[in-house]
Amino acid sequence: MRTETAIVASDILWQEIRGEARRAATADPVFGKAVADAILAHDDFTAALADLIGRRLGGSAADRERFTTFSRDAFRGQPDLVEAAGRDLRAIVLRDPAIAGLLPPLLHFKGYVALQSWRVSHWLWRHDHRDAALLLQNEASNVLQVSIHPAASLGSSVYLDHATGIVIGANVVIGDEVTILQNVSIGRHGDLPMRSPRIGRGVFIGSGATILGDIEIGDFAKIGAGTVVTGDVPGGCTAIGNPARLTNCLAAASSA
């Protein structure tokens, strides 16, 4: 059940978004029609977000309606998905110095849409609508170039920055406040057991990194660009290179 605090936070977020949308529509009448359709036509953040997913993934009117309905059902069935979506949106504003408001990442950042599409597909997967979940994953991969398996688990305040070529496999676990740049692959390793990487809170994963196998990446660790990680990375450490080696650890550590 949604707490009163969560409801208030969602309402505040929505009013901020609508305020930005009204100002944007006034400043740019050409853009104003798009803003009106995407934001001002809706009564709340839930409706706007479901419609946004349908618009971005649906190549036809029928597909748009299908994906909007999937999203609406998921948000109604698990309202805290909408709270997580709000935290994801605020996380972009906090971590990206080029962003000054909520509206641009909501409307224009495909990583944000891909993440919310995954939240819907994960809900479908857990409720035994697995064909629908895989359909949603496939469309997000085709259209947005982000493929997150519905059986993965992601926290909130996650930021997929640039969001091209990201692949996250089944059973991967990603904590809160994680940032993932482009061309990152996270999944199982070869013929090893099916357990996949567990990524802790506040981890930063640089572009082109590969994280494979039954391993743990500790809280607030950093994975450098192009790094290949097949072993544990303790919390707070930085992993760089191929094969990965650890730096900036509080205690001496061997290669990851």
Rank of each mutant, 00 (worst) to 15 (best):
Q182E: 10
R198T: 15
A152K: 01
I180R: 00
I174A: 01
Q137D: 02
V178S: 00
A163I: 08
V158D: 00
V158P: 00
S156V: 04
V184R: 00
N142T: 15
I148E: 01
I166M: 03
S153P: 00
L192V: 11
R195M: 12
N183V: 05
G169F: 09
Q137C: 01
T164Y: 11
Q182L: 08
L192R: 14
L181T: 01
D161S: 11
A140R: 03
G175A: 07
T164M: 13
L160N: 03
P197A: 10
R195V: 14
A140W: 07
S141C: 06
S157W: 02
L160S: 05
Q137G: 00
H149C: 01
I168V: 14
P150G: 06
Y159T: 07
T179H: 05
R188K: 15
G169V: 11
E139T: 13
S196E: 04
Q137T: 05
H189Y: 12
G169D: 10
R198H: 14
D191V: 14
I148Q: 01
S196I: 03
I174D: 00
R195C: 07
L192S: 13
G190M: 11
D161W: 11
D161M: 09
S157I: 02
G165E: 07
V143W: 09
Q182F: 09
Q182Y: 10
A152N: 03
M194S: 15
M194D: 14
V172D: 02
H149E: 02
I174G: 00
G175H: 05
H189T: 06
R195H: 15
I168D: 00
S185G: 11
Q137L: 02
D176P: 01
N171D: 13
V172R: 04
S196F: 02
T164C: 09
I166D: 00
S153M: 09
V158M: 08
H149R: 06
H149G: 00
S141N: 10
L160R: 07
R188A: 12
N142D: 13
S196L: 02
A151V: 12
V173S: 07
V146R: 01
D176W: 06
N183R: 12
D191C: 09
P197T: 11
L154T: 01
I186Y: 03
I180V: 11
Q182K: 10
R198Q: 14
N171E: 12
S196M: 05
I174E: 01
I148M: 07
D176Q: 06
R188F: 08
S141M: 05
D176L: 04
S185V: 14
P150K: 07
A170S: 14
G187Y: 06
D161G: 08
I166W: 01
I148K: 02
G169R: 10
S156R: 09
T164V: 15
D191P: 04
S185H: 12
D191F: 13
V158W: 03
A151R: 12
R195D: 13
M194A: 15
E177R: 13
S157Y: 03
G190R: 11
Q137W: 02
L192Q: 14
I168P: 00
G175C: 06
R195T: 15
I180F: 01
Q137A: 02
N183C: 08
A163C: 10
L154W: 02
S153A: 13
H189P: 00
G155E: 03
V173T: 13
V158F: 07
N171W: 09
D176T: 05
G169H: 10
G187Q: 05
G175T: 07
P150S: 12
